[in-house]
């Protein structure tokens, strides 16, 4: 007779384990992106005056978003394999270079009257776009072999 503690389930195949691994990562990605969108929309509505947000609620929401983002990023970077970590490192490096060049270049151009005053959101979007394109390029290269 089998003891109640005995695990009678057959061991998972490597492909099943890989599927579960992908699903776990996908779920954390969706939750993180969803929370980011929700936070962005909430803060955007508050900034435009559509939604009333007390200072306490604002700072609490921002702190929760920051903690959640850091926790999800740490979980992600510890869970993924070394190839993924390397791709993230290169993409982040490209983003950092882009941020430095865009912001410094824009400030210098603005100081000489060649461009309007730097806009924080545009710099942020530019940085994110370069990071994303670099990451996508690396992934595409790996997929195409």
């Amino acid at each position: 007779m089998t003891s109640p503690e005995t695990n009678t389930n057959p061991p998972l195949s490597g492909e099943d384990r890989l599927r579960r691994r992908r699903l776990r990562i996908l779920v954390v990605w969706i939750i993180t992106i969803g929370a980011g969108f929700l936070g962005g929309i909430t803060f955007g509505l508050a900034a435009s005056g559509v939604l009333s947000l007390s200072p306490l609620l604002f700072w609490t929401g921002l702190a929760l978003l920051a903690v959640g983002l850091v926790a999800a990023s740490l979980w992600f970077m510890r869970r993924v394999d070394e190839v993924e970590v390397i791709d993230n490192l290169w993409a982040s490096f490209a983003g950092l270079l882009a941020h430095t060049l865009i912001s410094a270049g824009w400030v210098a151009a603005s100081a000489r009257g060649l461009a309007p005053a730097p806009d924080v959101i545009s710099v942020l979007l530019g940085t994110l776009a370069v990071t994303f394109v670099a990451y996508l390029g690396l992934k595409l290269r790996r997929r195409l072999g």
């Binding site: 195949s13 492909e15 384990r17 890989l18 691994r21 394999d81 070394e82 993924e84």
Partner: peptide
């Protein structure tokens, strides 16, 4: 994919 699951990395790795 089978090997990737066994050694806990992605198929791309």
């Amino acid at each position: 994919a089978e090997l990737a699951g066994r050694i806990d990395v992605s198929r791309q790795a």
